[in-house]
Amino acid sequence: MGELLAQTALNALYAASYLSLVAVGLVLIFGVMGVINFAHGELFMLGAYGVVVFYADLQLSFFFAIAIGLVFVGLVGLGMERALFRPLRDNPLGGLVASIGFLMVLQALAAMGFGVRMEHVPPVTQQVISFSDKVHLAVPRLYVIIAAVVLLTALWAFLKKTQFGWALRASAQDPEAAALQGISINQTSRIAMFIGAGLAGVAGALTAPMVSVNPHMGHSVIVAAFIVIIVGGVGSLEGAVVAAVAYSLVHTFVTTFYDGVIADIVGLSLMLVVLIVKPTGLFGTADRA
């Protein structure tokens, strides 16, 4: 029993890692631009197809494929900022609707380019770290955990220690007052969109060898990410990470001991309970809600 618990906790840590990457990007984009990016799951999907193309098909190095995924998906994010969100800046609902439309465009493009069947990505390595007879961590999963820790730490340092990081936080808190300091909202939006999209792309790329890659794979990720940012408090990066860990623990344990459908129900119920008890989310403040 103790070993099963330990194994499940490791699985949850892996799930929390890629979910944090997706959710933090979503929160960053919402914080700076005030728009909910419904196409965020499809950015995750694009990152996974980057690995299909560059690693599985073209046989380039896995980490090179991930780097390409980060840059390419980041650039797609820049394009979304310019073409969708900037023209609709004074219309947050419009931005949300546009992102739903773009989600369908990306899914259709993926289906046209690759077909709707699942893509198989060969394992990066068969190596497994064994803690005991029954407790294992596959090395590709370890990569995801390491990447999440490194990237989220780097993001934290960027936001706290650099001038552009302050600018980003300032314009998330008060875009007009930020403009009065010489901070261009177009520039901070571009940075937020590139980082947010890039993180989703990296998460998709890293998990590609362990999940079924298909045009609709973003769906389950985005649902989990929405639950996480609502529970964490929309607009709070720390909240998103904490809630991603909490959600992944609950979801993974329920999946292991009962089943996946029950786990989805429990996850959504937890969100409802948080909304009833603390409508701003665990780390949210009233003025951001």
Binding site: Q163, W166, A167, R169, A170, Q173, D174, E176, A177, A178, L180, Q181, G182, I183, D287
Partner: peptide, 26 residues
Amino acid sequence: IAHVPEGRRIFPDLTVEENLRTGAFL
């Protein structure tokens, strides 16, 4: 031209020093 807006509009979740440094952003 610097503008001290109505209602102060400081950045609530930045520290005092970070607020001051955003003023020198350019």
